[in-house]
């Protein structure tokens, strides 16, 4: 029956809605400008999305467990400034672990507040957004941070180098995505993250230590932020102390675009990667089409909302069928 086939198409769209939307965008932009799908352009987009992407990987865990993390942007500024500053004071080999330790400490603080004290994650991370910004400004004395001897350090190799023709940031993004994807999909911890986000009460009634699981999601998130800060610092070897400002919304957009529910309990690392790529390719595509820079903000968000609508509508089955 034609009706059945429509249902099947509907069910397929419901599962893969965002992937379909992604393909439609790609085809549309590719038709508008052939350069869009050239290998160097594609690699360029992925590389410039990598920092956002690394942060989105961690936030995926937080969102699936049913919480938010709005502090990642300002935390990334912090990591970047700290590692640049310590680079000249301690040398890169010590600066990197020291920066990771400090960033993880911030993640642990958030994890403690949200996980163990059960404070609302929106409030806590919004507060941390601003508190960490203040911390960064205090730390840097409000100045920009630069590595003194840019030519004489191997530090830049992480963000600027490449292995077998694959740029460093893409490699790290890919590797981290793989590890975290397997962690989420295949380990007991990953299962517990879904359970806590899907139904926290039922998780507790099943003997799952909810507080510890939530705590760990913020540790993972801050680890990803530290990695992003490292990439950012290494690529630019100098930075303003507002480098990550506003990224938290792009990160959240990528995670939601990927189809993770803000209510928790659903989403995957792979889908987040797709969300990150959509975001990157939209911005790149608009640039190639020749849209004025400021207009891009508007168009980007119009497209994001359209994509999410398509996804939600397909899940509800409302586009193709009148019955919910």
């Amino acid at each position: 029956m034609a009706d059945d086939r429509m249902k099947q198409v509907g069910a397929f769209l419901a599962r893969q809605g965002i992937l379909v939307a992604f393909l439609l965008f790609m085809i549309g932009f590719a038709l508008a400008n052939h350069r869009f799908i050239a290998i160097d352009n594609v690699l360029g987009v992925i590389r410039s999305s990598a920092i956002l992407g690394v942060m989105a990987l961690g936030v995926t865990f937080v969102v699936i467990s049913g919480n938010l993390d709005l502090s990642v942007g300002s935390m990334m500024s912090f990591s970047t400034i700290v590692v640049l500053d310590l680079h000249d004071k301690l040398g890169p080999a010590l600066a990197i672990p020291a920066m990771f330790a400090m960033t993880l400490a911030l993640g642990a603080l958030i994890g403690f507040l949200v996980g163990y004290l059960r404070l609302n994650s929106l409030i806590v991370t919004l507060g941390m957004l601003s508190a960490i910004h203040g911390l960064t400004l205090t730390y840097s004395g409000g100045k920009n941070m630069d590595i003194a001897d840019k030519a004489g350090t191997w530090f830049g190799g992480i963000g600027r180098g490449s292995v077998l023709g694959i740029p460093g940031p893409i490699l790290i993004f890919g590797l981290l995505a793989l590890v975290l994807s397997v962690t989420l999909a295949k380990t007991p911890f990953g299962r517990k993250v879904y359970a806590v986000g899907g139904n926290g009460t039922a998780a507790i009634f099943s003997g799952i230590p909810r507080a510890r699981v939530v705590f760990m999601t913020y540790i993972i998130s801050s680890f990803c932020v530290a990695t992003a800060g490292l990439l950012q610092a290494s690529r630019s070897l100098g930075s303003q102390n507002t480098v990550g400002q506003g990224l938290e919304l792009d990160v959240l957009a990528a995670v939601i675009l990927g189809g993770a529910s803000l209510l928790g309990g659903s989403g995957t690392v792979f889908k987040t990667v797709i969300g990150v790529l959509i975001l990157g390719f939209i911005q790149n595509g608009l640039l190639l089409v020749g849209l004025e820079f400021y207009v891009q903000y508007v168009v980007t968000w119009v497209i994001i909302i359209l994509a999410v609508w398509l996804d939600v509508a397909a899940k509800r089955g409302r586009i193709l069928s009148p019955i919910a």
Partner: peptide
Amino acid sequence: TQGLVLGMNCRDNITLPQV
């Protein structure tokens, strides 16, 4: 509200306490 994670599949719900 207490017994099940409704959005999870049957198998994962059964094995949740011992996963």
